[in-house]
Amino acid sequence: MSQLVAVFHDESRLLAAVRGAREQRVPILDVYTPYAIHGLDEALGLRGTRLPWVTLAGGFCGMAGAIALQVWCAVVDWPLDVGGKPAQSALAFLPITFEATILLGGLATAAAFFWRSALSPLAEPRPVAAGVTDDAMALVLKLDGTGPDERAALHELLRAAGAGEVREEDR
């Protein structure tokens, strides 16, 4: 797959290039930035994240698991008399249920994020351009199916938007 990488050192120029590419209906593969840039999601026209659904599912599993474990231990399998309270004192189960809900919700969110972003400690880093984890921002456009004239026009567009470096590459 051939792609066009344009490197920027300024947020506003990057945003202008993203808007320009979208106006000309050039498919944008991705944008790499070292930090979150306000307005970039809107400029890229990204749909809302679906990550909260993973959080909800993970949190629900944590809640159900914690309640099941505590009820089984303290009510079904081995009832204990604690301060004369009934074995099934739901309020006493609250702290552990609360913590387990947050723990599993958080772990599920992090795991889903790493999986979808193809991040892992074992993955070999393949930065799209030098400096995208430091002070540079890279816009990556899809080139498949574009003719030489269109490519030249794209180079012109990106240069005009203020890209410091524009190059084509095959991955």
């Binding site: 301060g83 309020l91 006493a92």
Partner: peptide, 12 residues
């Protein structure tokens, strides 16, 4: 609110 209620209820 829950911290205050829970601890007082539990300690009784």
């Amino acid at each position: 609110w829950v911290c205050q209620y829970l601890l007082i209820w539990y300690g009784n």
